[in-house]
Simulated assay, not measured.
Amino acid sequence: MFGWKKASFDNYVEAYNLYGGGISTSPEVLQFLHCRLNFNEKYFVKIDGNGNILAAVCVWDANYLAGDPNVSQKFSNPYPVCSDEIILPIKQGHQCVLPFKSKFLSCKNADNVINGFHILNAHREICFVKKLSGKTVNTRNRELKRFFNNGGKLINILNITTDEFVDIYDELFFMRRQIHIDKKAIKELLDEIPSLKFGNILFWNNNPAAVQFVIKKQCVNWINFDFINIGRDMNLQDSSIGTIAMWVNVRDAITLSEKEEVEMRFSFGRPTFDYKERWCTKEKLYRVITL
């Protein structure tokens, strides 16, 4: 086990509070999922000679890192928690061998995990919002001002109930994709962990126009924002409505991160669409090679 010892959930919480992690590996999300799905979860820690925790990990299905999308799919996880990146709570500078599998280890842990490799990982990457130029910010703000001048308004999702948000998101998602979301699963997640809530809904002439569904989790050195999906009224002629829906959330994420004086990690997921090139830079994902 390369020095890893079995541990408790409380040990894991201690490590996460010390060293941070991602949304899918946060104690709140793990506890939520473990109460509803049988991942056969186990916790392990590395400790130093004085008994201090250096690293912690939650393992699913015997030997996979918790949050691994393949395991989530295997167990039919209906809850909208992104698994595009797995960030483990490991002390900066500590190096270890992970005897657990995944192809989605974050570059945050690249220097920690000796047996993590990008070159052997089909060049998997993830997109994070980059530092936007002054020109881009001015352009986005002009689009937003025009939206307001033409009858648009914003409502922060913290100012409405979870039921109202889920109904609006479902309506706009169906307009865009002609399928419905799992309203029960989203409502259950947001009601159980309200701190995940983040973002704004765009209204045009008092009707829902667009929403980018984002969840957030702050840890010791950064704030994670995960872009889950987007819905919009496809009948609106303003082609920038989707861009505005994304911009108001990115703008608020920047403001919050600066206020908290921590790094912003706003994920747009895997590089699947061209528009992400305009918003993001790419970070490598690592495969953990085990025996």
Rank of each mutant, 00 (worst) to 15 (best):
Q237M: 15
Y275V: 12
L172Q: 02
D233V: 05
G3F: 03
W60D: 09
F100I: 09
V250E: 00
F147H: 01
R36P: 02
S83F: 07
T255D: 13
F174L: 06
K131C: 07
N249W: 03
V166D: 13
P208A: 02
Q92V: 10
C127Y: 03
D167P: 06
A110M: 11
C219I: 04
A7E: 03
T136G: 05
G20C: 03
F266S: 01
G269E: 08
D170K: 06
P271N: 09
E85Q: 11
P69T: 05
H180D: 10
N138W: 05
H34F: 15
D10K: 12
L154V: 01
F39T: 10
D182E: 14
D274F: 05
S83D: 10
K183W: 10
S83R: 09
K217R: 15
K103Q: 11
N50M: 08
R251K: 14
P208M: 05
D48Y: 00
F148Y: 07
N229V: 10
I223H: 00
L30C: 12
R142T: 09
L30G: 15
D84T: 11
D61W: 12
P208F: 08
C35T: 14
G93W: 00
L65T: 03
G134H: 10
T162E: 13
D233M: 02
L196S: 15
T25S: 14
K5H: 08
G151H: 04
C82S: 15
S83V: 06
T243M: 13
A55R: 06
C219Q: 08
G152C: 02
I90S: 00
Y64I: 00
R278N: 13
L202G: 00
L98A: 14
T25L: 09
F117E: 12
N206T: 01
D163S: 11
P194L: 04
P271S: 11
Y19C: 01
K135G: 12
N77K: 04
K197S: 08
D84C: 11
I193V: 11
G67K: 05
I201L: 02
G269F: 05
I223D: 01
N40V: 11
G199D: 05
E192C: 11
L285W: 05
V13N: 04
L190V: 13
